[in-house]
Design a protein around this nucleic acid. Structure first.
Length: 275
DNA sequence: ATGGTTGCCGAGCAA
């Protein structure tokens, strides 16, 4: 089975390109992030015509995640248990002693069982800035996911679980082109890196680096300032696998060519082959 | 060159 993950940065702007990728690369299951649409706006027909089923969750023009599969889609979950929402205005309410508004649940996680693998398409909050409320949200979100994922393994040590997507964390200094511009920035801070590494403590293995250990191997390049031609990229898309699944991974590929040409997403697919 | 890119939607936000 071939499993891939890709932040497509709008599935409507790129439906043809995503279908072409699925067919050219013979992908069985694709986890998609940043569809940027509601469920009723998703271009289902383009994927169904190519022989794929789609499970999607999207509430607005922001976020949105999907699993696209030609080996079945069962037990779809449009959030993980305990998934935090963004508590807009929580800090203000705390200061004034007023009741905080209800947190806004965002479409950032979708789980589906495809071909015997529990696949989670994950779009980790960006964080925006170290002083921003979205940064605390990001850390809480990662910790809540880790707690759930640890529980899945405790319940079934032989579980085949893939936690794949845009983690918005560059775990190593060599996962960015240069650390200097990231001074005081998100994606590289110690708490974010610890929250990411905690998935290893929970028993998972990040199989993309196991198979592609080369430094400065990127999955994302900003649209601005000729970042791609200058290869000023970041490695922020990863695949944590449960032990039983990690043992099945034979190859991992990053399809750098998908960043080329007109109409490219700013991220490229990460593709896993499973024995 | 006081910007730089893209996508949402149709101004300004988010990444």
């Amino acid at each position: 089975m071939r499993l891939a993950t890709w932040n497509v940065n709008s599935v409507r702007a790129r439906a043809d390109r995503v279908v072409a990728f699925l067919e050219r690369s013979q992908v069985d299951v694709l986890a998609v992030q940043e569809t940027k649409c509601r469920d009723d706006q998703f271009p289902y027909l383009a994927f169904e015509a190519a022989g794929y089923e789609v499970a999607h969750v999207g509430f607005s023009q922001w976020n949105g995640v999907a699993v696209i599969s030609r080996v079945g889609i069962d037990d779809v979950a449009t959030a993980f248990v305990g998934q935090p929402g963004f508590a807009k205005g929580a800090a203000d309410a705390d200061a004034t002693g007023e009741d905080a508004p209800d947190p806004v649940h965002e479409a950032r996680a979708l789980g589906a069982t495809c071909g015997g693998v529990r696949v989670w398409s994950l779009y980790v909050p960006n964080g925006r800035g170290l002083d921003d409320p979205h940064y605390a949200y990001k850390l809480a979100w990662l910790e809540a996911l880790r707690a759930q994922a640890a529980g899945w393994l405790t319940a079934d040590p032989a579980a085949q679980v893939a936690l794949v997507g845009d983690w918005n964390v560059a775990p190593l200094d060599t996962d960015v082109w240069d650390m200097e511009p990231f001074t005081g920035a998100t994606h590289v801070s110690a708490p974010e890196r610890a929250a990411f590494a905690a998935f290893a403590d929970a028993g998972y293995r990040e199989v993309s680096r196991e198979h592609l250990p080369a430094e400065h191997t990127y999955t994302y390049w900003d649209y601005k300032q000729l970042a791609f031609p200058k290869n000023k990229g970041m490695r922020i898309d990863f695949a944590w696998a449960s032990p039983a699944l990690a043992d099945r991974v034979t190859t991992v590929r990053i399809d750098r060519d998908e960043r080329k040409g007109k109409g490219a997403s700013d991220h490229v697919p990460v593709i896993l082959d499973l024995a």
